[in-house]
Computed example of a mutant assay.
Amino acid sequence: MKNIIYVLLLGLFIYSCGSSRNLRSERLANAKNDTVRIANDSLEYEIIIIEPGFNLFINSIAQPEGYYSQQYLESKNRQLVTEYNNRVRQPLRYNPNLYVNEINYEPRIDYGYEVNYLLYNYFVYFSRQYNQRFPVPTRI
Rank of each mutant, 00 (worst) to 15 (best):
L10I: 10
N77A: 13
Y94T: 04
V7P: 00
Y111N: 11
Y6A: 07
I5L: 11
Y122M: 06
P107L: 03
E114I: 06
D34V: 13
N86T: 04
G11D: 04
I14E: 02
Y68F: 12
A31P: 07
V115N: 08
R37Q: 11
K32V: 15
P52V: 08
P91G: 00
S20W: 15
R89H: 04
Y130A: 10
P64N: 01
L118P: 08
S60A: 04
Q71T: 12
Y67A: 01
N97I: 10
R21D: 05
P137H: 10
E106I: 10
N77R: 02
S69F: 04
N77M: 12
L28T: 14
V88L: 02
N116E: 07
G18N: 03
S75P: 05
P107R: 02
R24G: 07
I50H: 08
I50F: 10
G11I: 06
V124G: 02
N40E: 07
G112I: 12
F54T: 02
V88N: 01
V36H: 13
Q70H: 07
R139I: 15
Q79P: 04
Y111V: 11
M1P: 08
L98E: 12
N131V: 13
N22H: 08
S42A: 14
V88D: 00
I103F: 02
Q63R: 08
S42Q: 11
S19M: 11
T35G: 06
F13C: 11
Y67E: 00
K76M: 14
V81A: 09
N104D: 14
E114Y: 07
K2I: 14
S60H: 01
I4P: 04
F13E: 09
I103Q: 01
L28Q: 13
S60C: 01
Q71C: 03
R93W: 02
E102L: 14
F54I: 05
L12T: 13
Y99T: 08
R139A: 09
S69T: 14
V136S: 10
F134T: 04
I48T: 11
P137K: 06
K76E: 14
A29D: 13
F126Y: 15
Q90C: 02
T138A: 12
I38Q: 05
N33I: 12
D34S: 15
Q79S: 11
S127R: 00
L56H: 08
Q132W: 06
R24C: 13
N104R: 10
Y113W: 11
Y122F: 15
V7Q: 05
L10F: 08
I103D: 01
L92H: 04
Y72S: 10
S16C: 12
R128F: 09
N85M: 00
R78E: 08
Y122P: 08
N33F: 07
E26G: 01
Q71N: 09
V115G: 03
V88T: 07
V124P: 00
Q129R: 12
A31L: 12
G18Y: 02
S69Q: 08
V7A: 06
A29Y: 10
Q70S: 03
N40D: 12
F57K: 00
Y67P: 00
N33S: 10
E26Q: 02
Q90T: 00
A39K: 14
R24A: 15
Y113E: 07
N97P: 03
A62Q: 02
C17Q: 12
R133W: 00
R87K: 09
R108N: 06
E26Y: 05
A62T: 04
D110C: 08
K2N: 06
V7S: 03
N131R: 15
